[in-house]
Amino acid sequence: MPDSPGLELIAHELDDAAAGSVLSTYHEHGQACLIVDPQRILEVLGWLRDTPAQEYRFLASLHGVDYLPSEPRFGVVYELLNMPRVERLRVRAALADPGGEELPEIDSCMPLFAGAEFQEREVYDFFGIVFRGHPDLRRILMPEDYVGWPQRRDFPVGGEPVIFTHTEREVPRWYA
């Protein structure tokens, strides 16, 4: 785990290598996180993977987050792991919501980490984040004909009232 100064060091070196890619950093609960520009995500991940002093060669997990109502709304989070040093580093691409019917887009990191395939599909499935260059971007967990992005915070929780003996008066015209 890079400690707080170590994280700043990484952030500075990364900013030198790919100028303007790091937006901010934070270090919380012993976890280090870089917040980066989604346009530069491949540069950032490539640098972290291949620079001799870094060598975060393993993508432990990739997931999406919806931070509604804050801006930028979405985050795509990459949990990197350096196996020999057992150091973890979190990289978060802060992705704005283009609004309307349009979906936010980010580059697929499959050229760097082939194991990201299913996880990118899952993020697409639940958050509607499009991964450019993904070879097979389909829904993975929800049925293929499902409409909507169910893990977004503005997606209705769903479910429906079920009629029991004790609720039959409250469930409005359940028979219709």
């Binding site: 929800m142 909507g148 169910p150 997606f155 929780v157 769903g158 479910g159 429906e160 079920v162 029991f164």
Partner: peptide, 14 residues
Amino acid sequence: SSGGMFANYAVVQG
């Protein structure tokens, strides 16, 4: 029987 605690997008309610 009724969806139980999973009143959400993924589970059939009964």
